[in-house]
């Protein structure tokens, strides 16, 4: 354990009462919280790895596969431009997917745990 000052609570007090460390630990180890954590992590972590890999693929192809990226598809539009625009499209798509997941699966679980803790405190 640390011997330093406790986390700063300078300034105005917050509106809600703070639960004790003990009750935080209890909640952290509850199955309900475990499920919230799993629902969040099993969605956000693989998706993060996927979009970083997809982005790195794009960077590496730009670097080392110039011939392929230069292939013209129609008019002056080549693979490189379409690939770049696809990065925009996937970014918008992933943002939408995550927000939908969070609203449907995470927010209700988080809200339930939060209101129970606030009622107990």
């Amino acid at each position: 354990m640390t011997t330093d000052a406790p986390p700063p609570e300078t300034g105005q007090a917050t509106g809600t009462a703070q639960p004790t460390t003990q009750s935080f630990t209890q909640v952290q180890q509850s199955t309900e919280f475990g499920e919230l954590r799993r629902t969040y992590r099993s969605f956000a972590f693989p998706l993060t790895i996927a979009f970083i890999a997809w982005y790195l693929l794009y960077v590496l192809l730009s670097n080392y596969a110039g011939g392929f990226m230069g292939t013209k598809l129609f008019g002056n539009i080549n693979v490189a431009l379409v690939f770049g625009l696809a990065q925009f499209a996937t970014t918008f798509l992933i943002a939408w997917l995550y927000s939908r997941h969070a609203a449907a699966k995470l927010d209700p679980k988080a809200e339930a745990i939060k209101s129970r803790m606030e009622a107990d405190a």
Partner: peptide, 20 residues
């Protein structure tokens, strides 16, 4: 690691309990 503090941070960060 300070396990108690991590419990606080993890629960707060995912649920928003006690958020300022």
């Amino acid at each position: 690691p300070d396990a108690g503090k991590y419990a606080e941070l993890e629960v707060k960060s995912l649920t928003g309990i006690g958020a300022h």
